[in-house]
Design a protein around this nucleic acid. Structure first.
Lengths: 357, 357
DNA sequence: GTTAGCACTCAACAGCAAAGAGTGCTAATC
DNA sequence: GATTAGCACTCTTTGCTGTTGAGTGCTAAC
């Protein structure tokens, strides 16, 4: 059966009506729409066809129709119109994405929280894995007789730090010395390239204080590998209470179960995560059965060529894709601008050069 | 009316039955208990009396009775027996409270998460406000051309750090110099005593680079005041789904509303927070109307004489007070031991000395 | 090809009766 | 005088029933 323009138009009307009302859509309802001049009976025939094509689902005989995953997919891919943000929205979003913090993690989390507030949906964020970061500077700072801090900064401006519990007391000078050696041999490597063997190599450079150095280096290695860890966070979850699909506690519980299993969520998101484009996962396209009635929209933000993170939303499949996608892309773009310093400037320059051609 | 032993015994039986079953307790039910040899009719008379005394509530005429806030209060204050932990539990709790992290925040959060897992209840934690901490060491470390890190450690071992976005490039030497000056004039003060004027005083010590120094000091002041901020966190909230009192979404929503209003929660907890003893807030003793059917149990953990934090649980008023209190006290004790280094040692020494008398 | 009309389906809702848990009171019993 | 058996009464819970209404699919007319 062919999907002609009329069918597409009807499908679009059904999806949009369902997004607004959360109620199965009946033929009369669509027939009454000003831009569709067809009787309910005709619409009914078309709806029957659309159901046969797997784009609509009828919850029960005497109910209207609801979009299937396929229906939403078609809508998102080719029916939906791009949402044009109003000037007021742009102003609001700009204000919301202004960084009020210094640290990468906090900037991202702040922006994510603001995004959740604006869309009224739970948000998911993945902080850039630093493994791809290129070490610019490593510093070991003595703090206390048994404590030191390792500070690693990368080319794109990420700064991570980690406390080390020392087994021996060290002097400030010793820390400076270690700092110098670490920098000489590790800067320029990506963080994932730093492993115990090249840390230990460092060690052989100086012979004295071998034991102490060895234990410090062991700790440095540990710290670096912990710094490397990917992180996922979720915010604004209680937004789901706004939705009629969550008036049942069982559903809420299910969702919380999924959200609390951070490891699995991180795995799914990482696998699905887009490189450049926004990605929409609808219903059972999400490999978590509990989320078969939900959708996830993800978009990347970039700090540099290699360093990227992900921002996204999670909500009922019945969501305002067009508006949410616009907002998400605006937010990730702003976030990239805020976070990528060197990279961002380079890119802007490139754009200008291209514009000059 | 006098509260004789028999009434106390019956009240205890009712509270404990209700804690277990979550169902209003009837007279027959209590009469059947092996240690109470009274007919249902007698129990009924006593229950009538207990209700008149405001210790029990009857949801409706044909239902059993439920403890009132006052009933729980009496139970907690004088009926409940102290729960003796089994050896296996002690073992389990010890394992759960072992610190796997370095940083104060993470240790506390880890222990709190473990506590939530063990009690099956949402936990509340307040990190020690550092304002009472005595500055031991301040360090300004240059990281990048426009970034420096301020690291403040206090006598009891808390280490906090904060990034500063610099307006001028500074040298490592300059940072060292600032570090030296800061230490000379600020160490020994409590963090709350550090204010702009005594930071600025520092500034006048050296005349050169005045402008740069001024802007750095301004940032240092900002960083210190942010370091000072009290923090509250909540974990394991989805545990509430286990309770029949949360089968209604409205209730869940209400609870989430309360939990998400961190500022208010912090205020309430801080006001109620115990100095040394465990504190139990039951039902409408909590100044948040939405929590009138809940209880909060709080216990302090200590890093030093002045530095304390709070760990607690939040759950339905119908909770196993005896067991939860035992566990909470064990957890906060372990946490204090882990966190208080100097203080802990001193205290232990004192105990030993006293033991020698 | 489109539409009016109509029989049919099914969830949702209100009303009602029966069941069951528990009470308070009275009168008998220890 | 305290305790208890017995009984009428109350009120929620549950299950059943009929009604309503939204929506469909099909047929026949336009």
């Amino acid at each position: 059966m062919a999907l002609d323009d009329r069918k597409r138009m009807i499908l679009q009307a059904i999806v949009e009506d369902y997004i607004n009302t959360a109620e199965p859509v009946g033929s009369r309802n669509i027939s009454k729409k000003s831009d569709i001049n067809l009787s309910a009976a005709t619409i009914r025939n078309e709806m029957g066809d659309l159901e046969e094509m797997g784009l609509l689902i009828q919850p029960h005989t005497s109910a209207g129709r609801v979009p299937s995953t396929g229906g939403y997919r078609l809508y998102v891919d080719s029916l939906m119109e791009k949402y044009e943000m109003t000037a007021a929205e742009i102003e609001e979003y700009k204000l919301a994405t202004e960084a009020k913090q210094q640290e990468l993690d906090k900037i991202v989390k702040d922006v994510a929280a603001a995004f959740s507030g604006i869309t009224g949906l739970p948000v998911i964020g993945v902080l850039p894995s630093t493994e791809a970061g290129v070490v610019k500077n490593i510093k070991l700072v003595k703090i206390d007789s048994d404590t030191a801090m390792l500070i690693v900064s990368d080319k794109s401006g990420i700064i991570k730090n980690k406390l080390l519990k020392l087994k021996h007391d060290i002097s400030d000078d010793f820390a400076d010395q270690v700092t110098k050696i670490l920098n000489e041999s590790l800067s320029g490597l990506t963080i994932s390239q730093i492993n115990l063997s090249n840390i230990m190599e460092v060690q052989s450079v100086i012979g004295k204080n071998f034991e102490i150095l060895a234990s410090v280096m062991e700790l440095v290695h540990q710290a670096v590998s912990e710094i490397d860890r990917k992180q996922i966070f979720v915010d604004g979850v209680s937004n789901i209470f706004r939705f009629p699909e969550y008036t049942n506690v069982e559903k809420v519980k299910e969702l919380f179960g999924v959200i609390e299993d951070k490891d699995n969520l991180l795995k799914i998101i990482t696998e699905a995560a887009p490189n450049t484009q926004t990605k929409v996962l609808i219903g059972d396209e999400i490999p978590i059965t509990e989320l078969k009635n939900n959708s996830i929209i993800l978009a990347p933000y970039r700090l540099s060529e290699t360093l990227t993170g992900v921002l996204g939303v999670l909500g009922p499949a019945r969501m305002d894709y067009s508006k949410v996608i616009s907002a998400l892309e605006f937010f990730t773009q702003q976030l990239s601008m805020t976070l990528s310093k060197d990279f961002g400037e380079k890119k802007r320059q490139l754009l200008i050069e291209k514009g000059d051609e």
